[in-house]
Nucleic acid binder design. Structure first.
Lengths: 347, 347
DNA sequence: CTGTTAGCGCGTTCAG
DNA sequence: CTGAACGCGCTAACAG
């Protein structure tokens, strides 16, 4: 960056003090004569004056940027959340500093640190790492935090939660009501509360009807962009190899469900005629494939908006404003689930 | 944020000058005795010292954040680019300030302004707006800019470009070589160089073979998350209503192609048996559907990385380092294109 | 090796 | 209504 004009430069040109210039250009309510106001504005415009927020923020100790930490932006689930956050931030003149943690606790902590150093006013975080000690320390040091998706054991943290258990339950009930009895659940490692929640919902709905649970859990923890999809494929393969084919497969998220359907097709099975598939998340792409994916909707965009609003509230009203909200699931009925046995004899 | 400890606080506790503390804590190469170093570090740790980068940046006039402006993060094409940018930024200790312009020129300019005010060191921008005067002004004022996807008429701007024309040509040639003669092109408004490029590639390949072009261009410019998809659907509908069904449809991007396939299915037509479909972009989801989408790959992630690297180069070596790169397309052959006429009589 | 001083760009007392 | 003086947290020049 080049050296830019400062309020002092303008003050010299306008032959006034820099204090007056500051009062005018920062739209202060402080009384300044109309003529001086006009004169100063004119000169400022002419010379493309751009305020240096660093100076202002250093002086007033109030930055206008909030940090957002999520696992990865290329996952539509998260990008949609970010969009919600940014929307609200923008309306309130805040900027968004974005970081992808890639599910890496170390990276997450590193980002937390730089954000703190850069004086972000608060943080919206979808943390995955189990170890929250670092985060908790920052909170104790005064950082305002809204946690998405994952409970954090600390006071003064706002939480945006989602009733995963209920979602899992609803989805399973729907399959049961459609007449399915052999319903399998395929999932990424059950190492997070969210995934555990869905799983528990599935189990309780099955138990309730005296049905046998059929579960496939992947063990790999390696992270990559298409991890979920591959997971869906391999878990489905394992399911089909067992010989006793389920009539419905419920996946822990939509991406995994796409993998399930892809593998079914590859094995010559049709969805939903041969096997019904239920997803979880409600990302846009579910609508775009054939069959359109029946799934449980999480209001991601709204979650982002809500999280940002909660953060802004904490910022303006102090930490007592910390609160918790539990969002509710909705069933998105589309085309990937039908009644079972429509083609039972076809294989 | 609470009042945090400063180097002065530490200086007082360690009974040294704040200059010494600064030299130690900022890992300066300046000579300080080992004992003092240790003592100061100890105290700093004990009191959770966090440097205030605002002070540092104000003094040294070097911020470590770069701005990224893209139309919308929920489009995988862009989120993938951002991921590439962030990856490189992180490796070089830079932060990323993210903004969604939503294709809104006004918003874009507003973001440009706040970024400037917040002293970002440079900007990576995928600008859509035709009016680049504001951007050009900032460049003239010394801002370092890398433009993605869209040419900017100014000196000292680095450009990451993609050979859209060639991509469009390659895709069309591939369809022709598969034996197609009635190849339709469906596209969002041809109001950007990128879209025009693909279109021209299509036209030139068709002309070359003496084939008749069949084009459907949407006129709506309203923006929404599923705009492209809906576009694909409605343009396909219009194409089918004409009675003279093409054997292949080439879409201006993958999302539109998804809409094409969805509409075909809805009308009882199969892809690729009845109609082949070719996309453009190569987003991950193309692999996840059945049939997997045949498409032209843009190396989005690499484009992001490249853009960020070019920016860093400009920052370190001065504006002369401004450069331009034209990336090349690759054909991603998957399952949505086959030879025509495989089921010509079935309808 | 260490301390003193000055100032980055800005806002804010406190006098006038 | 206006200006002089000070300081936010930090680094850099200059002494010692």
């Amino acid at each position: 960056m080049k050296k830019s004009v400062t309020i002092h430069d303008i003050a010299r040109m306008a032959e006034v003090s820099s204090a007056t210039v500051s009062r005018v250009l920062s739209n202060s309510s402080y009384p300044v004569s109309a003529e001086l106001r006009a004169k100063i504005w004119k000169i400022a415009k002419e010379h493309n004056y751009i305020p240096n927020m660093l100076g202002k923020q250093l002086k007033t100790k109030t930055s206008t940027t909030i940090g957002v930490i999520i696992p990865t932006i290329t996952n539509m689930y998260y990008s949609s959340i970010i969009l919600g956050v940014e929307e609200i931030a923008r309306r309130n003149q805040y900027q968004v500093l974005l970081c992808n943690s890639f599910q890496d606790p170390e990276l997450e902590n590193k980002y937390l640190k730089t954000m703190f150093e850069n004086q972000v006013r608060g943080i919206v975080i979808a943390s995955i790492s189990g170890d929250k000690t670092q985060l908790t320390r920052y909170i104790e040091m005064g950082m305002n935090v809204v946690a998405l998706d994952q409970k954090i054991d600390a006071e003064n943290v706002s939480q945006v939660d989602f009733d995963y258990r209920k979602g899992g339950y609803m989805a399973t009930r729907y399959l049961i009501e459609k007449g399915h009895k052999k319903i399998a659940y395929v999932t990424a490692p059950l190492d997070r509360p969210s995934r555990k929640g869905i799983f528990e919902g599935y189990v309780s709905a099955m138990k309730e009807e005296g049905l046998e649970t059929i579960v496939r859990e992947s063990d790999k923890k390696v992270y990559s962009g298409t991890y979920e999809f591959e997971n869906g494929k391999s878990l489905t393969r394992s399911l089909l190899e067992s010989g006793d084919r389920p009539t419905a497969i419920f996946a822990c998220n939509d991406m995994t469900a796409f993998g399930v359907i892809s593998e079914l097709n590859q094995q010559g099975l049709r969805c939903p005629q041969d096997v019904s598939v239920m997803g979880f998340d409600g990302i846009e792409f579910g609508r775009m494939m054939t069959p359109a994916l029946t799934t449980v909707q999480q209001p991601t965009y709204e979650m982002g908006q809500l999280a940002c609003n909660m953060l802004l509230e904490m910022l303006s009203e102090g930490r007592k404003a910390a609160s918790a909200v539990m969002l509710q699931p909705t069933l998105l009925v589309r085309d990937s689930v039908s009644e079972p046995g429509m083609r039972t004899q076809s294989n």
